[in-house]
Design a protein around this nucleic acid. Structure first.
Lengths: 186, 186
DNA sequence: TGCATTATACCGATTGTTCGGTAATAATCA
DNA sequence: TGATTATTACCGAACAATCGGTATAATGCA
């Protein structure tokens, strides 16, 4: 077989950028074709069931990357405040200073919602649990931890939206920087 | 002129529902036609420049309604805490318990972003100023008031997104209920 | 009548998708 | 080793359907 010009992972990353900017229905195969350098028919080689498959692949890969780059670096035995500061930095980096949207947000609209809602729901639940268990280590009880985990996700999503809508990325950066303090406040 | 079966306002309201659910690019003229009961030619009679015009009209009307239903009821001479509680209730009602999205969110994506970003930016700024001036009445200084106003908007947008993504509207309701306390916390 | 509204019919462009095919590497076998 | 066969990577061209949009004639009310 011919040596692939890029790995499937690289292709998915390029798809991700487009989906994040335009949402699911707003993204056309022409855009994806241009972003990857692959002609439309070639995209069907990697994703036999078309756009749905591309959306699924992007959703999965970006979810894995989030866990890997934002969650996994957290050391549960370390100083909790320091670990949250670290998470804050990684969040800012992951969302490129607020320049890129969250896939869970843009894929929960319209037609994409029906396609991906189960996956999205599970991702949110999983993320809530991970952050909650981290907060339990910090001494909060189960219910408090869960509530504050949800607050954190609300904060991230809201800050992304407002930064995007206002055109002021500093809103996102500021929100992420106060997040650790906010989560630990009694 | 022949008495129209519905006023233009009513038509715009019906358009709003579709745009809020599917975003701008995700909304097709067929959907809008079906939602209004008007055939395409009729839509073009009301909105000569097509989809853009419909988006603009919806953006404007929903913005007016927000001010009217959420902001204006606030009595600047009343007890500030009570007024914020009232705002919370109105927010829950305006966003139908978290069932509908914010237009500023869904119109700030992809192609719609370029079309509407100036308007969206101004809406956010205006809203920030209104809430900030309310908080100044509560005794916060100018900078604190502005920061907390942004926090409030972040909270609303974030709660809407998370409620939608998780399929749990209670997230939105809860977030709105704690909003007044949060805004006034020293 | 005159004018606002709608119906019908249509446009070119683009949508997501499919099919047939080519070329390059890997695997197999003589 | 060298020839053969699969397998993989990719592309050109076309598909029906739908997109947003536009004519123009018919309709209904003042």
């Amino acid at each position: 077989m011919p040596a692939p010009l890029k790995t499937k992972e690289e292709v998915i990353e390029q798809l991700t950028d487009v989906f994040r900017e335009h949402g699911y229905t707003g993204t056309t195969l022409s855009m994806l074709s241009e972003a990857t350098g692959l002609v439309k028919a070639s995209l069907y080689h990697y994703f036999p069931r078309g756009k749905k498959d591309m959306g699924l692949a992007v959703l999965e890969q970006v979810g894995d990357r989030f866990l890997q780059e934002v969650i996994e670096p957290i050391d549960l035995d370390g100083n909790i405040s320091e670990q949250l500061e670290l998470m804050s930095l990684h969040l800012i980096k992951f969302y490129k200073d607020g320049r890129v949207a969250c896939l869970l947000e843009v894929f929960s609209l319209g037609q994409a919602r029906e396609l991906f809602q189960d996956i999205i729901k599970k991702r949110i639940e999983r993320l809530t649990n991970v952050i909650a268990s981290l907060l339990q280590k910090a001494g909060f009880d189960s219910e408090q931890s869960r509530q504050r985990a949800i607050d954190a996700i609300v904060q991230v999503e809201g800050a992304l939206v407002v930064a995007r809508a206002s055109g002021d990325r500093q809103v996102f950066i500021d929100a992420m920087q106060v997040l650790p303090t906010q989560l630990l406040r009694m």
